[in-house]
Design a protein around this nucleic acid. Structure first.
Length: 111
DNA sequence: CCATTGACGAAGA
DNA sequence: TTCTTCGCCAATG
């Protein structure tokens, strides 16, 4: 084949790789930003995973991606409905502690 | 090409 | 436990 091989991350937008993973998260389970970063073999930093999710298409269950503390950073943004992410997760059967965090040990999903 | 930006993570105070 | 600091890397203008 021709030598025209672009860097792997340019094959698709680096963000797209994040979406692919997020779409595989089953209901009632969650993944952390850092976890996704590691699954991508460090091609993208945890910071940017979250940033990618912010611009994610609608077919991505962004709600199932939380920070390493098991909390919803999105709720802090106040961009719209406060607690929307938490609300959606509770619909899927995820329980939150009063502190606003979930038990990651229980809900974290690993492929 | 350069500066800015971000929904993070881990470690330290 | 909360807050701060640093590292991290790609997208945007």
């Amino acid at each position: 084949m021709k030598n025209r091989k672009k860097p792997a991350r340019s094959r698709k937008s680096t963000w797209e790789a994040v979406y692919e993973i997020a779409r595989q998260i089953p209901p009632g389970r969650v993944m952390t930003y850092g976890q996704i970063s590691r699954l991508l073999d460090g091609r993208i930093s945890p910071r940017y995973v979250g940033f990618a999710m912010h611009a994610c298409p609608e077919d991505v269950p962004w709600q199932r991606v939380v920070n390493a503390s098991g909390g919803c950073s999105t709720d802090r943004l106040g961009g719209g409905e406060k607690g929307l992410q938490r609300f959606l997760l509770e619909m899927e059967g995820v329980e939150f502690r009063p502190s606003g965090s979930m038990r990651l040990e229980k809900y974290r999903w690993e492929p």
